[in-house]
Design a protein around this nucleic acid. Sequence first.
RNA 1: GACCCGUUCGUCUAUCGGUUAGGACUCCAGGUUUUCAUCCUGGCAAGAAGGGUUCGACUCCCUUACGGGUCGCCA
Length: 433
Amino acid sequence: MIVRTRFAPSPTGYLHVGGARTALFNWLYARKHGGHFILRVEDTDKERNTEEARQAIFDGMNWLGLAWDEGPEKGGDHGPYYQSQRNEIYDTYFEKLLAADRLYKDGDAYRFRFDRKPVTMNDLVCGEVTIDYRDASNTPDMIVRRSDGSYVFHFVNVVDDLEMKMSHVIRGEDHLMNTPKHLQLIEALGAQPPQYAHIPLILNADGSKMSKRDAGAAVGDYPRQGFLSEAVVNFIALLGWSSKSDDEIFSLTELIDRFSLEGINRAPGRFDLEKCKWVNQQHIAKIDTAEFADLAKPYVEAKGLPITDDYLTVITAVKEKVRLLSEVPDAIDFLVTDKIDYDPEATAKAKGNPNAAHIPALADHMETLTEWSADIAKAAIGEVAKANGAKPGQLMFPTRVALSGRAHGPDLGDIFTILGKERTIARLKAFAQ
RNA sequence: GACCCGUUCGUCUAUCGGUUAGGACUCCAGGUUUUCAUCCUGGCAAGAAGGGUUCGACUCCCUUACGGGUCGCCA
């Protein structure tokens, strides 16, 4: 059997992390088993569909790196991949149900007559679940065709999964109660159902239901916030799935290698932005400097900062200091421009430090230097400190604040190297004033 | 309300009857870094409650509580 999975969003809003994770799990499962991953657009709700939403979903999928083997912009043997273009196919299946005497009119609409019996599904995540369809009050016959002649979700979704030869349907738990309906439809059509796996939903940090407006909900916000796509993929994979090992940082290919449906959890998970940032930091640490420099460049330019000749050196100095790409501009601004925002708290602390009194002496000493390097400049601190009966380390904090205006930042040696002798001395003198 | 799924540190999770209940994020304390960060070490912190079954239960069963989902001519 060839594994075929799909992601079937309706273009009515931006790509949500829950949807992204559903797409990811389907994609991973297909890749893991050498199968095919299909993208199908469920645009049967003409009222709510928008082109912007469709584009946002495609953009989100592309950014996450979840390429589809069949679908819009790609083609395939089971198209068209927009449900709005598949009406003739649905008509055929509708006729089949009609011929089987499973439909009856309700006004101008058509309802599907359920078999009044217990329906058991064998979910790959939830296990055996039985819904008793003898209780009609709980399971009223469902509309499959509206009075305007259009078909509803349950019907087209089932027809397409059959027509597109899906082997596995991995979807959100919000569909669990829909599955027996779909099973009934498939049985009435005399077809074999795919295997189902229902994954738990994603909640906000406080346990409330995550909606489109909540922080972290829209995949489209992540690039803007400075997340690496692979980190986001890594994080959402970990929300509701476990590799059953102590490892947590995975590349896309490592995820494919480790993924299995057995590792999916049953309880809904809460979205923890702090951990997501930590995962991002770990991924930043893993990529090489040149790639990091390229990724950070748009953020630097967006803030109006110049890309200096020594940009790579500057970037190297802060690579381990940031968790998000968007933090890069603030981390390097004092290195690539001469405008320094002196943090009041750090400045007060530095000025209050008795060793700050030696800053002018340090500047004077540095002016006598004929050569300049990180080591030479650091040695200068050592000498000035010793001459004044202080430890070198004690002079480093005031120096750091004098040069950067803040308490945290790159290695002092890196700062010396990037600023050079003249700018270093100028800043020391300015600070001492 | 009915039906379905679930419940291990604050959060994400490991454990598939026998463990001092392990790891990660966060937080705290040390150490490395002459500075910042990284990093390393240590610490705080959990089986919702009550009944069973069993020599033995976080693990299996029941009840209750709590959380989530579904009950559309939305998807």
